[in-house]
Structures are given as C-alpha cells and as structure tokens.
C-alpha cells in the first residue's frame, strides 16, 4: 500500500465519531469608527495612513514623501511618471534594488491593520517583500471591521494573496522589537476617496 493509502486507512480506523461544525463561525466587531480604529491599529505597528482625494493628489503626496528616493516602482498606472524603475522584468531577482514600491491593495482590516494584496494587482509576488520600503493604496471605502468580514469578501481568491500588517519586524534578540527584518523597513498606506481601479 502507498504511504498515502496507509495513512488515510489508519486515520479512518482511528478517527473519533463524526462531530458537526460549530453553529457560530463568525462574530461582529462594533467599532464606533472603522477608519479611526484602522488608523489606531496601524499607528501601533509603525504605519502612517494618509487620505488622498484622487489619483492626482496621490501622485503629489507620493512625490512629497519620497522626494529624494531613487529606484521607485509602482503597479499603479497613475503613478507611472513618479516611478523610475520598471516592473516589466521577467526575473523577480531583478527587483532587488527597489527602494520604494507603491502597490495597489484591495482592502484593509480595522482590527489588525492588515491590507489584502494579491496576484490580482501584482505582476510579481516578491515585490511587497523585496522592496526596502512599501506603500499601499486602497479605496477609502474598503475598510472591514474584522477578519470574518474579510473572508466574506475573499470568497474567490487568486493563486496567491497575503494579509500584510505593517513593516516586517522581529523580536528574536532578547525580545527587543526591531523594524525591518527581511521585508519592508517602513510602510505607508494611502486611502483614496475617488473611484479607483
């Protein structure tokens, strides 16, 4: 018998009598102001949130924040002029020198500050990790209260996606928090008001 079949056979013999799934699988979070909660959560994980009216204001704000930075990349057409690094490369290793990437995210979660990013808007999965600094743009009206709400929205997912909450970090040396482990060293989130595709 193959390993597969013998494992499955043994599981079948040894598993307990069938039990049902719990009746309640999701809980509501009641925040007075979802956006305020989102900001508060992100402030605690070293991430600043900016509201921008439209793509023009986004471009202006991006210019202002990353004024002397070279090797800027973006997946957002409206920022094409802002970028000086093309993502049109075949091998993700070539992204290694990117200093700042501004990437489109799909929505944010207030309870933990996470932003969902996926293959849907990304040409390279490695981008949000390999860039030295990361910024997300998400629609201002896309904030969810909690993870149950988030998965309601994620019924259909692409080949890969990730919740990212703040810059990368570690506390593996004597529990001292250090920002910038292997992924981004800093993070900024833009909430955009205008209809944004």
């Amino acid at each position: 018998m193959s390993a597969r079949d013998s494992i499955l056979q043994k599981i079948k013999e040894n598993k307990p009598a069938a039990s049902a799934l719990p009746a309640t699988l999701r809980y509501e979070s009641f925040f007075e102001n979802t956006e305020a909660k989102f900001r508060e959560t992100l402030a605690a994980i070293y991430t600043e949130v900016f509201v921008v009216k439209d793509q023009a204001e986004l471009a202006q704000k991006a210019e202002e924040l990353f004024v002397n930075v070279t090797n800027r990349a973006t997946s957002i057409p409206a920022l094409a002029n802002w970028a000086d690094f093309s993502l049109n490369v075949a091998d993700p290793h070539e992204l290694e020198t990117i200093e700042i990437a501004i990437v489109q995210g799909e929505f944010g979660v207030a309870e933990n500050g996470a932003v969902w990013v996926s293959d849907h808007y990304l040409s390279h999965r490695a981008l949000p990790f390999i860039t030295q600094n990361l910024a997300f743009v998400i629609p201002r009206n896309s904030l969810m209260n909690n993870m149950h709400d988030a998965y309601e929205r994620l019924k259909d997912t692409t080949g890969w996606g990730c919740f990212i909450a703040g810059p990368s970090k570690t506390a593996d040396i004597e529990q001292s928090l250090v920002i910038g482990a292997h992924g981004a060293r800093s993070m900024v989130i833009f909430l955009i008001e205008e209809e944004f595709v």
Binding site: I45, A114, F129, T158, W160, F163, A165
Partner: peptide
C-alpha cells in the same frame, strides 16, 4: 502567541507562480 492582533504576513499560497 505574542499579543499582536495578527502577524505581519499571513501569506495564502494556492497556485505556483
């Protein structure tokens, strides 16, 4: 685990790139 509301990265792999 650590008192964080979520880990920085929760990566959902489904298909190879």
């Amino acid at each position: 685990a650590t008192g964080q509301p979520i880990t920085t990265y929760s990566s959902h792999f489904k298909k190879p790139r």
